[in-house]
Nucleic acid binder design. Sequence first.
DNA 1: TTGTACGCGTTATCAC
DNA 2: GTGATAACGCGTACAA
Lengths: 341, 341
Amino acid sequence: MDSINIKKLAEALNLSTSTISRAFRDNSDINAATKTLILEKAKELNYQPNHYASNLREQKSKTIAVIVPELANNYFSQAIHGIERVARENGYHILIYVTDDDYSKEVNFINHLHNGRADGIIMSVSGEANDHNYLNKFGANRLPLVFFDRVYEDIETPRIITNDYKSSFLATEHLIEQGCKRISYLVVNKSLSIGKTRMQGYIDALAKHNLPFEEQLIVDCSNSYEENSVIIKNALTQLKPDGFFASVERLAFATYYACYNLNISIPEDLKIISFSSLEIAPLLNPSLTTITQPATEIGTEAAKMLFKILDANGLKNLPSEVVLESKIIMRNSTSNSPEKP
Amino acid sequence: MDSINIKKLAEALNLSTSTISRAFRDNSDINAATKTLILEKAKELNYQPNHYASNLREQKSKTIAVIVPELANNYFSQAIHGIERVARENGYHILIYVTDDDYSKEVNFINHLHNGRADGIIMSVSGEANDHNYLNKFGANRLPLVFFDRVYEDIETPRIITNDYKSSFLATEHLIEQGCKRISYLVVNKSLSIGKTRMQGYIDALAKHNLPFEEQLIVDCSNSYEENSVIIKNALTQLKPDGFFASVERLAFATYYACYNLNISIPEDLKIISFSSLEIAPLLNPSLTTITQPATEIGTEAAKMLFKILDANGLKNLPSEVVLESKIIMRNSTSNSPEKP
DNA sequence: TTGTACGCGTTATCAC
DNA sequence: GTGATAACGCGTACAA
């Protein structure tokens, strides 16, 4: 491996390594002429300062890590896209870690990242049912951390979230206004904060409209497509709901399949509204009424927040929470007079 | 910053840094007892070897970079998911770069990556219309590189692709068999290899079935949703095709919207088949007939290929091309007797 | 404005 | 089996 380094470049130009180094930083004084000379030669020889050496020297990595539960989900892809853009604009790179909703992977990732590999972490969490204390053991050495969407309530760190309670309330109210009397709430894990918050909106909307709340109408689903299929079919046949409020888009899709299967027609027999970032929700059969979160913007804001923390460098009068607005977009899956769009 | 390092850990245990270091590698000889002692203390003090120092020392980063044109696309999300899994299993991390189909960004990313930040690159290219020579200037120092899906034909490096020609041929034939006489081919950039290959399949299938090939039936679209909307509407009204073969899923979606708008009914008036990795294609209205690429598997194979190269360490009798099979899944958008599924 | 010299945290080599 | 030491490539005091 005869790759180029600062020393060789220095020799080639008959200069010292420090001068070369200076040519690549903005702060140091250096003769403009020598600087251009160096940069030219560097380009010619394809030299770039070694990232790891710089990092070691400067004790920072210009890298942020992004941890998400899954990737095959429009919401997270869009969020990452937002993060990537902001990161790049700031000269940062992003590392991606997928937990597959596995708490132990999350813990592993976080632990490993504390070896200097990243300057900060943006995470949507996976282990709400578990112990979050692993995040505290780093003490003051914990990397700057920003939560988005799925958060640990008991961990003190900035978070970017959406107004889930209000959206859920309005979503449920929308179903009620469309005539639903027996609305079921589909959730992946109702003990998770996000599932809980959304459920509370649902419960309160029922109460406001004097509809009884039945425990059994809370349908707790899993992460497995097959299991959900069974669970949802059972819910449909046994509970006989006339409305579904899905807390996650995946559950709406599973419901569509189940309804096709059971010959239940949406929206005549069952109306459904779902949290979803799917851009082609209008193309579904029937088009799906969604609560759409500003996914890209959430990513953007999360990244901006992280950079604020990194810039602040200890000063801690930062906003601890940013709440963005989701939008309810009404379509045929909750319509009373569905027509082809 | 009083973070822990190997020296402090050594002091805390009254050992030398070398011994500590040994405890963390698998190869070196070390007393089992001291090793467990060290690992325990390390855990207690939350010590991990600094990644950048190790990298500097070992001249490798245990990191691979993934460059994709876009992220808000099921295909690439799934591919990245596959890559991430394999990388993690090999103890590697992945950096993500999104070019937004901008050639200059791609060049920038590649250049920057050659500073030691990554050990290898997996890329789906963005700049086919441009000069690919920038990849050659690194000479023997070029990082190991694997292309997937979108490749530069003139760059010699392993690639993971799908049998696009055959799929396209079969897709077109399928439309013909369903009774289409006037099939239009929707492409984003017909000069790109992927657009070209798919087009050739289309052309040859027409020929086989004695259908005339008309230049104007090749509809060249853009990356802008608005522009495509206009282009496709024009194509529908002016060319009056009875079949669409979309080389990219985005164009199929745009067609759906256009047809809703123009009151053209799919599949009665227009049949459509598209390359797409959308998992909920069955839920569209009507359900979309797709050529589905094994996206996750492509990612997996690309990553495996890269690791093979990294392991081979120069030995170059590696397969230069892996071709995976796409599947055509027939649904209602190309059906002659559509019924609700 | 430029050069010298040291150290960032780690690991490989060579002693012991 | 363990310790001392040099080197990885770079950036910055400090000296010139």
